[in-house]
Write a protein that binds this DNA or RNA. Structure first.
Length: 373
DNA sequence: AAATGTCACAACCGCCGCCAA
DNA sequence: GTTGGCGGCGGTTGTGACATT
């Protein structure tokens, strides 16, 4: 029964790879391809298990790996994709050419995650959390003095923060603001694309060649929703829609985007049913259905997606100006680095400053804070 | 200069789904 | 139909480099 063991686990080397081992592995793969990882170590003369060889190759030796620090655009993309996909590092890596899942995972854990926590944003749900927010650092920061995030104004001027209802309200407001924050990110991503002609070329190309890997990952997402999406806000859903629709068949979305424009946060608590109906009927262009077979026999419909997402929160939609041009579907096979001509921010503070835009919000006039005092 | 703390990242571990036997 | 290895993935660890005290 079953296959014979791939290798004798005993006597195989572990730990850091030596230059000699690297050379052997590279030489072998360049001549023969990796073929079966199971048989590769023996054929290449390596005292390693196939798994170790595969990891070494995919995470370090592969010639198309991009080394060096992450660009700002890459970081934006990672954050955005993480908000959609959760800890699906391989799926994220597939949209960042030259970056490995391991590299992205490490970068997330060592940089982005900490930064989000510092900003009071839950790195799992991407929702602002006051219990994470280091208010003292904010109050002492330049941010506090700007009009972007005036915490005292948010919480009620001149009043000590003691009312839990107020905290809830503020958290709620921040949560709804997050949708705008993601929009900001998307806008930045779009601008990056527009600035980068190579992006446009890629997108033009892709519009005629649906990304199979994308479809695969979409299906994977549908059947295995991100475990981290314990509270998936509606923007997450829309971002999934962005992933789903692949790439630049955007015009129909943009033409319909006015349907997403809500005039005020309180006036637009949408009914889920109506939402689903609108989505399925209005927001999936025929071209997308044709290209990606969203409504094909084996593909889940928009309604399926929504119904599977039990935590779908339609009442979080406000002031959305959806434009579905997105970097989310950068092809993994693209030889063009995502970050051509990208901007590098040299310090953590500069990144924090940039990221503080994500917390930029204003309280709608319609809300009377005194009601909550 | 030494001790200690923190960061960065390569590599390993363990689990899961797929599929060959 | 069952079993168990392979490939892939996400989580975690080990360790060297660097910063701080």
């Amino acid at each position: 029964m079953g296959r014979a063991p791939c290798c004798d686990k005993n006597g195989l080397k572990k730990g850091p790879w030596t230059p000699d081992e690297d050379q052997k592995l590279m030489d072998y793969i360049q001549k023969n391809g990796h073929g079966s990882w199971r048989t590769l170590p023996k054929n290449a003369g390596l005292q390693r298990c196939g798994k170790s060889c595969r990891l070494r190759w995919t995470n370090y030796l592969r010639p198309d790996i991009k080394r060096g620090r992450f660009s700002f655009e890459e970081e934006e993309t990672i954050i955005q994709l993480h908000s959609v996909l959760g800890n699906k590092w391989s799926a994220i890596a597939a949209r960042l050419p030259g970056r490995t899942d391991n590299e992205i995972k490490n970068y997330w854990n060592t940089h982005i995650r900490k930064r989000l926590l510092r900003m009071g944003i839950d790195p799992v749900t991407h929702s602002p959390r006051f219990d994470l927010l280091d208010l003292s650092s904010i109050l002492g920061s330049q941010l506090y003095n700007s009009s972007q995030l005036n915490v005292s104004r948010l919480l009620g001027i001149h009043q000590p923060v003691v009312n839990p209802e107020l905290i809830r309200l503020a958290t709620s407001l921040l949560s709804s603001h997050r949708e705008n924050s993601n929009n900001l990110l998307l806008q930045n991503l779009q601008e990056n694309q527009l600035r980068n002609p190579e992006f446009q070329q890629q997108n033009q190309f892709q519009s005629f060649q649906p990304n199979q890997q994308l479809q695969h990952s979409i299906q994977a997402e549908v059947h295995h929703p991100a475990s981290t999406a314990s509270a998936v806000p509606c923007d997450t859903f829309f971002n999934e829609a962005q992933v789903m629709q692949g790439n630049n068949t955007m015009e129909p979305f943009q033409s319909n985007s006015t349907n997403f424009n809500c005039q005020g946060s309180q006036q637009n608590v949408w009914q889920d049913n109506a939402m689903v109906s609108n989505l399925s009927e209005d927001f999936v262009p025929v071209s997308i259905q044709q290209n990606y077979g969203l409504y094909g026999s084996n593909q889940p419909s928009f309604e399926d997606l929504v119904s599977e997402n039990s935590n779908f929160q339609s009442n979080n939609i406000s002031n959305q100006n959806f434009s579905f041009t997105s970097v989310l579907s950068t092809p993994s096979s693209s030889p063009t680095p995502l970050t051509s001509g990208s901007t590098y921010i040299s310090t953590e503070d500069e990144r924090d400053s940039y990221c503080s835009n994500m917390l930029k919000f204003e309280i709608p006039d319609i809300l009377d804070m005194n009601d909550f005092m």
